[in-house]
Simulated scan of single mutants.
Amino acid sequence: MNKARIEFGETVARGSEPDIIIRTDKVLYFIEAKLSAKNETKPSDLQNRKKYETGGNGLFRQIFKSDYETVAIKEERYELMRYWLLGSWMAGQLGTDFEFYSLVMSSRDQEIQAEFDKHIIETNERKFSRLTWEQICNFVKTLT
């Protein structure tokens, strides 16, 4: 994670970090878990874009349909943007697929997948999905 932070101009001590990172031989998973908060964030310093648009040999343009201003500031998807960018880069370095999940209550952020999907370029190797706590709970119930 630290190499990704440095690649995109973040400091190691205060860089982006999703709540859960799982690495398997085939997939790198990022999970950003929210209980009552929404996935609406924008940068605190609107002038400091770090190297999000230029790092990773211009990866931003390869994995986003929309520009930084639209995603991070206008649509307030700054946190999701950072995780999509850093996770995609890390998966590329690892030679694995990347799956990014926004974990929310079923009553919250019901449109988050459609809203974020319009800004990103998904492939068979790089996917974003909304997941609910209730889905996890129901899955766990099937195990017992």
Rank of each mutant, 00 (worst) to 15 (best):
I31L: 15
E10R: 04
K50T: 08
D45V: 04
S102N: 08
L35Q: 12
E99V: 04
E53H: 07
S88Y: 06
M1Y: 11
Y68Q: 02
T96S: 02
S66Y: 05
Y29N: 03
F30M: 10
R14C: 09
F116C: 09
K34L: 13
T54Q: 07
P43T: 05
Q62F: 01
A13Y: 13
I21N: 13
Y52T: 01
D25T: 08
A13N: 11
V71R: 04
S36N: 13
Y101K: 04
V27F: 01
D97L: 03
A13F: 12
I21R: 12
L94F: 07
A33H: 01
E17I: 14
K50C: 02
G9E: 05
K51A: 15
F116R: 00
E40C: 03
K51Q: 12
E7A: 08
L46A: 12
R5K: 15
R77W: 02
F128H: 07
E32N: 05
K34I: 09
I20T: 01
E79K: 15
D19L: 05
G55V: 06
E10N: 05
M1H: 11
V71S: 05
S107K: 07
Y52V: 02
K42M: 12
K26P: 03
I112K: 00
R49N: 10
G87W: 10
G95D: 02
F8L: 00
D97P: 06
R5P: 09
F116K: 03
E53Y: 01
E32S: 11
G9A: 06
F98W: 02
A13W: 10
V104L: 05
T11A: 09
A4K: 07
R23Y: 03
P18D: 04
S129T: 08
Q113R: 04
K74E: 15
G15E: 07
R14H: 13
G55D: 10
W89R: 11
T24I: 01
S36F: 13
S107G: 03
D25W: 00
Y52N: 08
A91P: 00
G92S: 02
G9S: 05
E125A: 14
T123S: 14
N39Y: 10
F98H: 04
L46S: 11
R5C: 14
E122T: 09
E69Y: 13
Y52E: 05
E7C: 02
E69A: 11
Q110G: 13
Q93A: 01
E53C: 14
E76S: 13
E79D: 10
M1W: 13
E53T: 15
S66P: 00
S106F: 07
S129E: 11
R126W: 00
K127V: 07
S44R: 05
F30P: 00
S36P: 00
V104K: 01
E69V: 13
N57K: 03
S102T: 01
M90L: 15
L59P: 01
M1A: 14
L86S: 05
K127H: 07
I22R: 12
Q62M: 06
F64L: 04
V27E: 04
Y29P: 11
K127M: 09
T96G: 04
T54F: 00
D109Q: 10
K50E: 00
